[in-house]
């Protein structure tokens, strides 16, 4: 008893701490998303207005992040760029998670030849170095944010298909799935009511953790000129535009870099918190 009580206590503390983290990072993520949604009204200056007489100013109370080589306010550009970077990433992750889950569940549930074909296909995609393949796809499709998202989606879904398939295989054999069958539920209902909720956890966590990675890859493609096109404000392309000035005007690279760093961090930590919160053993007894 004496050892059991503190252990239970600790678990409760962990659960409480986990919930607090979930709320904190959830709130920060919501703040980022809201900021992106209302970016136009949040910008102190017009992010596209050039003023060559005020070019390359260092950070000051007026221009918090300084100005770039065309005299555009960097803070405004970072805020305006959040829309493309954050919404683009969320759209991308939603797309690949949904596509991968559908393929994975289908393969795992039906099994047999179809399963083998779908999984070899996803192996083929996984065998390519991701960003290189995305570069090729984006190169073929042409530049632009939409094509960059499509390129990254084309190479990123197999990870989700793998997870969804292995989870489906594991859950399919569990006693409660047999019980669901015995209740006379048709297969569609069993998949919807019993399978998907039980495999959603790992997929959701992977998706949350992927927001950070995908944000970087999307910025990476933009940096290489295959994503958002200048003068559109997007963090990756902003870094690319200023990369020649890195040694002389470092703030022009720091501003979008810091924005990427902070957003990636917030979404990664939120992903961690979601993973802990979804662990059924962490739930209250």
């Amino acid at each position: 008893m004496t050892t059991a009580a503190p252990a239970a206590c600790r678990q409760e503390n962990r659960a409480d701490g986990g919930r607090a983290r979930l709320w904190a990072f959830g709130a920060l993520a919501v703040l980022l998303v809201l900021g992106a949604a209302f970016s136009e009204s949040l910008c102190p200056f017009d992010p596209y207005a050039q003023n060559l007489s005020a070019a390359l100013q260092p950070p000051s109370p007026e221009h918090f992040f300084g100005t770039d080589r065309y005299g555009r306010d960097l803070l405004s550009r970072v805020i305006a760029g959040s829309r493309a970077s954050i919404f683009g990433t969320i759209l991308l992750v939603t797309l690949i998670a949904a596509l991968g889950t559908v393929v994975g569940v289908f393969a795992g549930w039906t099994g047999g030849r179809l399963d083998a074909v779908l999984m070899r296909l996803s192996d083929m995609f996984l065998a390519f170095p991701g960003l290189v393949f995305a570069l090729a796809v984006a190169g073929v499709l042409g530049g632009g944010l939409h094509n960059a998202i499509l390129a990254l989606a084309a190479i990123s879904w197999p990870k989700y298909a793998r997870i969804a398939r292995s989870q489906t295989l594991a859950v399919r054999e569990s006693a409660f799935m047999k019980a669901a069958r015995l209740s006379g539920s048709p297969e569609g209902k069993i998949i919807r009511k019993h399978l998907l909720p039980n495999i959603a956890g790992p997929i959701l966590v992977t998706a949350m953790l992927d927001i950070g990675t995908m944000m970087m890859e999307l910025a990476g493609l933009s940096f290489l000129g295959l994503g958002a096109k200048p003068p559109a404000a997007e963090w990756g392309s902003m870094m690319s535009e200023s990369r020649g000035l890195m040694t002389t005007v470092p703030w022009s690279v720091y501003a979008p870099g810091l924005a990427i760093f902070v957003s990636v961090m917030v979404f990664n930590l939120l992903g961690d918190a979601v993973r802990d919160a979804l662990d059924p053993k962490m739930r209250e007894r």
């Binding site: 569990s174 006693a175 409660f176 019980a179 669901a180 009511k193 019993h194 909720p197 039980n198 059924p280």
Partner: peptide
């Protein structure tokens, strides 16, 4: 079933 707890959907 043999496993009472596992025969119910945990969610």
């Amino acid at each position: 079933f043999q496993t009472p707890v596992e025969s119910f959907d945990p969610r």
